[in-house]
Structures are given as structure tokens and as C-alpha cells.
Simulated scan of single mutants.
Amino acid sequence: MTTTPHRSRADRRRATEARILGSARELFAEKGFERTTIRAVASAAGVDPALVMQYFGSKRELFGQAVQALPVPPAAADGDGLVDQLMASLGVKLGGLPEGTLAMMRSMLTDRAAADHIRAALGRQTDSVGAALPDADDPELRAALMVTALLGVTIGHQLLGLPVLREAPAERIAALLRPALQALSDPIVED
């Protein structure tokens, strides 16, 4: 006869919390903030709605913990290295984003807190990319254009499911986008 190891109360609590967060991520990603309810999250997690409130306090706090910040690419030593990093991040984004990130993106146009979160994350990304472009004219503007171009491709592919983006191989999208990002990373040479 095999015995299962005794799980402490703290271990069971962490497992329940993780299950609730996982269910919340899935529902926020699928329905956005407005259409996701505490009852739906609780049902998906197999717990009582009161337990969700006990663990997280409110739907807003649950949302805040369920979503995760967009990754900030580290600054590269040169424009080519930076473009390589951005293209690698695009490959990850086209391959599928974490549900928390999708939830945040889906909710950013209808929920002020989600918009603030995305704005801050994009600001950090822009600062990081801009820091890698010290020799370029208008490094902050160039960085913002690079970051938002990738955001637009990600939204078109992941959230809107534009057929032309969904059907194109990630390598083809990257090959077409790379020269635009490279042009933004290179200093303007005046004749």
C-alpha cells in the first residue's frame, strides 16, 4: 500500500491559489476584465467564490496578480544586436503569449488599470530599447516606434487573428519586419 505524502496547510493553500490564478488567467485572456466574473473564476478553479475573495480581495486585485508584465528586452551593444533581440521576442510573441499577458492586452482598451499597466510595461521596453540607441537621433521616438510596431504585429496575430498574419510563418514575418526595425536602429546619415 502506497501512502501519499502529507501536504501541509500552506502547501494546499499555495496549490489552491495557483489553481485560482491559472483559471483567472485563462478567463481574463479569453473574455477580458469586464466579462470575467469572480463566480466564473471560482467555478473554473473548483472553489467557492468566497475563497477567491478571501485570497485576492477583489476582482481588480485578482486581475493584477493574474496578469504578468510584458518582458523588457535587455539593451544590446549595437543596433544589429538590438534588432536580433527584438526579432527573437517577436518569435516568442507569435508563438503564443502567456495567458496573463493576453488578458492584459485584451483588457487594455476597456480597463484603465490594464491600460496603465501596459503603458508602464511599454514605457520600460521603450526606455530599454532607447538606451541601446545612444548614437541615433531621437532614440526615444525610434524606440517607441520599434516597440509599438512589434505590439501591433502581436495584436494582429494573437488577439485579432488576422488571417494573413496567422497563416504566414513567423520567419517570413520577421524577414519582412527586420529591415524596418534595422532602419529605425541605424543613425541617420546626412549627405
Rank of each mutant, 00 (worst) to 15 (best):
M1S: 14
T3M: 12
P5G: 12
R7W: 10
R7A: 13
A10K: 03
A10Y: 01
R13N: 11
R13E: 15
A15C: 11
R19A: 15
L21Y: 00
R25T: 03
F28R: 06
F28K: 06
K31D: 13
K31M: 11
F33G: 02
R39S: 13
R39P: 00
A40E: 15
A42Y: 03
S43A: 12
A45T: 04
V47W: 01
P49V: 10
A50V: 14
L51P: 02
M53F: 12
M53W: 12
M53K: 15
M53V: 15
Y55L: 15
F56G: 00
S58T: 15
K59N: 09
G64W: 05
Q65K: 13
A66W: 13
V72L: 04
V72E: 00
P73E: 01
P74I: 03
D78V: 04
V83A: 05
V83D: 08
M87H: 10
V92A: 08
V92C: 08
K93L: 10
G95V: 07
G96E: 05
L97R: 02
P98W: 06
G100S: 02
T101V: 15
T101R: 07
L102I: 04
M104P: 06
M104T: 05
M105R: 05
S107P: 08
L109D: 15
T110K: 10
T110Y: 04
D111Y: 07
A114V: 03
D116H: 11
R124Q: 14
V129D: 02
V129H: 09
G130Q: 10
A132Y: 00
L133W: 07
L133D: 05
L133S: 01
L133I: 07
P134C: 13
D135V: 07
P139Q: 04
E140T: 14
R142I: 08
A143K: 06
A144Q: 09
V147K: 00
T148F: 08
A149I: 01
L150S: 06
G152F: 10
G152L: 09
V153Q: 05
Q158S: 04
Q158Y: 00
L160A: 01
L162D: 02
L165N: 04
L165F: 05
R166E: 14
P169C: 08
A170D: 02
A170K: 02
E171A: 08
R172Y: 07
R172F: 00
L177V: 12
L177G: 13
A180I: 11
A180C: 10
Q182D: 06
L184A: 06
S185V: 04
S185I: 02
P187Q: 03
P187H: 03
I188Q: 12
V189S: 13
V189E: 15
E190R: 14
